[in-house]
């Protein structure tokens, strides 16, 4: 097993002040390993994006440490911070908002190179941009001179991925990269992320509320609720044998053509969801191991 590349060690982030404190992330620990995908799932407001932003150094943690190659980054060491920003890249949720409408695709792909690989000449940069587009299976001749509005959502998300790959990253944080895409193009983007991970040995953190896609790309999964990771482990173990009431609630709510409304008396399933929500809100017993690589933890009261 290869060495972890990025770790969160009991990281917390608190927003607000006085009595209005919100624990957006509470003692979150996770490990990203080259060539592997970790999925982070949970409902809106569970703290998934806060974790992504903590990794991206957009937020300063209020507790805990972010470890890159085993060591915490010294914020005063500008060179190290820049290297980190190159090594850890993000793909955002909304491909319509994450590309600048006033710039061409070529500009988007060359900009990270201008910032992080200043030794490249203009022609080298262009060659690199073309190569990136080919890597994400887009045609450079067609796209380099285009503007974001001329592209479909799926194409734009591929551009975002190409941009993230421009500076040879080690870690990619993908925050709901397919939630704004059509079902029919989702799979293409997921396959692309998967291919990049295995070809380039990237560590991938895949953030989503769509558990079915999490199963598709990730070997390990973490479930977040109210800022805390409540259940984690091997994806198959967690999904087939969910132990935490909140994980069960999430799984029960996933659209499932095998459980049709027409086959149950009206409203009964709704009640069961409400019951699980109540259970999930109750404090759970201490953290315990429930499988080979499968753990659950109490919910904060």
């Amino acid at each position: 097993m290869s060495e972890p590349i990025l770790q969160l060690d009991s990281v917390s982030k608190i927003f607000g002040q006085g009595r209005g404190l919100v624990h957006a992330a509470r003692n979150v620990s996770l490990t990203l390993t080259p060539g592997r995908t970790l999925a982070l799932v949970g409902e809106s407001g569970s703290g998934k994006t806060t974790v992504a932003r903590l990794i991206m150094r957009e937020y300063v943690p209020d507790g805990g440490r972010v470890l890159y190659r085993g060591a915490a980054l010294d914020a005063r060491d500008a060179k190290a911070v820049k290297a980190y920003r190159s090594a850890v890249q993000m793909v955002f949720q909304d491909p319509f908002a994450s590309l600048n409408p006033t710039h061409t695709i070529r500009y988007h792909l060359e900009r990270p190179l201008r910032l992080h690989q200043r030794q490249l000449s203009a022609s080298e940069r262009l060659a690199h941009a073309r190569e990136l587009l080919e890597r994400v299976k887009l045609d450079p001749d067609q796209l380099l001179a285009k503007f974001p509005h001329e592209l479909s959502g799926g194409q734009r998300q591929r551009i975002s991925i190409a941009r993230a790959l421009a500076v040879n990253p080690q870690v990619i944080v993908a925050d709901e990269p397919t939630s704004m895409l059509d079902v029919s193009v989702r799979l293409g983007v997921l396959n692309l992320l998967n291919d990049m991970r295995s070809q380039l040995g990237l560590a991938l953190l895949y953030i989503t509320h769509d558990i079915a896609t999490a199963r598709f790309v990730a070997g390990e999964i973490m479930v977040m609720y109210a800022g805390q990771v409540v259940e984690w482990g091997d994806t198959e173990s967690v999904l087939n044998n969910p132990q935490h009431p909140y994980t069960r609630l999430l799984l029960a709510a996933v659209p499932d053509p095998d459980r049709r409304f027409a086959d149950t008396p009206p409203g009964t399933e709704l009640e069961s969801i409400e019951v699980i929500r109540e259970q999930a809100a109750r404090p759970q017993p201490e953290t315990r191991q429930v499988g080979d690589n499968h753990f659950i933890r109490p919910i904060p009261v």
Binding site: F261, P266, G267
Partner: peptide, 20 residues
């Protein structure tokens, strides 16, 4: 635009209402 749990609750509510 809603997450899965809320989505399920709303659709079940609609289902109950249309039968009623």
């Amino acid at each position: 635009a809603l997450d899965v749990v809320v989505q399920r609750e709303i659709l079940q509510r609609i289902d109950v209402l249309r039968k009623k």
